[in-house]
Design a protein around this nucleic acid. Structure first.
Length: 329
DNA sequence: AAATGTTACAACCGCCAGCTT
DNA sequence: GAAGCTGGCGGTTGTAACATT
């Protein structure tokens, strides 16, 4: 439906980076007249750009309330918490970070946070420990087979020079396996620790493979002083009773606020009201919305979203498998 | 010093929802 | 109800800056 976006681009309008002069024209116009219709704006402002390009430039870069510079650790933590709940809803996340644009947050996520989580063995999409550590199992099996093969061939070969040649090639293989093991063990260590809570600045165990002069292969586990990056991952609070059974919206809300940084992360929030499944964001909204609070990161006290207004405070709810259901009588 | 690789981020693209005609 | 328009969103790309070889 509708036309293709920014059709004007096909008619010789400028693309690419904005010049200072263009920026100034855009800012001057909007400060005087407001943006009004974005489509009409470029012509009125004397810009050879499409309206969409002007809107993006303004909202992502020129707007006066934009906070520039590096993200603080508080902002970083907020993004992590919010992403664990909302997923790639960058614009929604941006509403909780004053002065930050959705584009900026998205870029920061893709270039920093995503990699950081992967390094820690956390799946950036689910915010849970990665399960692909199991994928390294075949390598471990192959390693065992290789050790057996080495012993077998050692008995077979008497020719010293031939054995030397073999050792060299196998040493390369071993080094590769060792590298693989180090990676998978770090992943597993991160996975284990994150299941029990926050893991920050704690040493990760590492398994090493030793190849002795006579090709004996041994594995031992050492505690290496390799520290994981400082990062707090929101997880289910194991010390807290699971939020199950019938609960009023007030109880649910209280539960949420009690979680502080350890908020249970619903990957997808759905509210079942009668036969209608409503998708939404139960923990975030404007303060004018439902009068209950849901603390995120121990600081950000937000309220339940607008669609919760529809729900009576004494309605019965059940949180099951990260979905919130309302009971109907 | 030059070539090559990597990172960061601004900007673009395609799609969609909501509104109007 | 269909078609068109607009603004918004999320994914992707292009490129400048920086790091490494």
């Amino acid at each position: 439906m509708g036309r293709s976006p920014c059709k004007e681009l096909q008619t010789g309008l400028k693309k690419g980076p904005w010049t200072n002069e263009e920026d100034q024209k855009l800012v001057d116009y909007i400060q005087k007249h407001g943006h009004g219709s974005w489509r009409a704006l470029p012509k009125l402002a004397g810009l050879n750009r499409c309206g969409k390009s002007c809107r993006l430039r303004w909202t992502n870069y020129l707007r006066p309330d934009i906070k520039r510079g590096k993200f603080s650790s508080e902002e970083e933590q907020s993004i992590l918490n919010l992403h664990s709940i909302l997923g790639n809803k960058w614009s929604t996340i941006a509403t909780h970070l004053p002065g930050r644009t959705d584009n900026e947050i998205k870029n920061f996520w893709n270039t920093h946070l995503k990699k950081k989580l992967i390094q820690m063995g956390i799946d950036p999409m689910t915010h849970r420990p990665r399960t692909d550590v199991l994928a390294s199992l075949p390598h471990l099996i192959a390693l065992t087979n290789l050790a057996e093969l080495i012993n077998y061939r050692q008995n077979q070969w008497d020719d010293d020079s031939l054995r030397m040649q073999f050792r060299q090639s196998e040493a390369v293989q071993m080094a590769k396996f060792q590298n693989l093991l180090l990676q998978s063990t770090a992943t597993a260590a991160a996975a284990v620790t994150t299941q029990t809570g926050y893991q920050t600045e704690q040493p990760a165990d590492a398994t090493t493979v030793n190849i002795s002069q006579d090709n004996n292969v041994s594995m031992n586990t050492t505690t290496e002083s390799r520290y994981l990056p400082h990062l707090e991952i929101p997880l289910v609070d194991s010390s807290k009773q699971p939020f199950v059974g019938n609960n009023t919206i007030h109880e649910l809300n209280e539960y949420c606020s009690g979680l502080s940084t350890q908020l249970i992360s619903p990957n997808s929030t759905q509210v079942s009201v009668g036969n209608n499944i409503m998708k939404g964001d139960p923990c975030f909204a404007n303060s004018a919305d439902y009068a209950g609070s849901c603390a995120i990161d121990g600081k950000d006290t937000t309220t339940l979203s607008s669609f919760w207004q529809e729900i009576d405070g004494d309605d019965q709810f059940c949180l099951d498998n990260n979905f919130i259901y309302e009971y109907e009588y």
